[in-house]
């Protein structure tokens, strides 16, 4: 939930500000970089989408594994906190 709300808030501010990129000072269409092509933008969006999708899967798997293990009281309490060894 916090992730969803955080992202939603961001989407709201970014969309709500349009067509301005800086409210009252510069329009988004005037701020577009002329030397970055649409293809390049598409490549970057797809690349980050794939990267984050892969990381989401890995994170989900790890969290599920961690949750499945549960909290085994004997394992948790008997072991002293690992000490730093130098």
């Amino acid at each position: 939930m916090p992730f969803a709300i955080n992202t939603a808030g961001w989407l709201l501010t970014e969309n709500g500000r349009q067509p301005w990129i800086v409210q009252g000072l510069q329009l988004t269409k005037d701020g577009v970089s002329s030397s970055v092509s649409t293809t390049e933008v598409a490549i970057s969006i797809v690349a980050f989408l794939l990267l984050y999708a892969a990381l989401t899967v890995v994170a989900a798997v790890l969290m599920t594994r961690h949750a499945r293990k549960g909290t085994d009281p004997t394992e948790q309490d008997d072991q002293p906190a690992p000490e730093m060894t130098y």
Binding site: S35, V36, S44, A47, L55, L62, R65
Partner: peptide, 28 residues
């Protein structure tokens, strides 16, 4: 940043993968 756009995307991806790898390598 406009001229080196794709190169910097690659740099960012490298930094993300590197950071995550250090974190996850020991998890399983």
């Amino acid at each position: 940043f406009s001229g080196f756009y794709l190169a910097l995307v690659l740099l960012l991806a490298g930094l993300i993968v590197r950071g995550i790898a250090i974190e996850y390598r020991d998890r399983v």
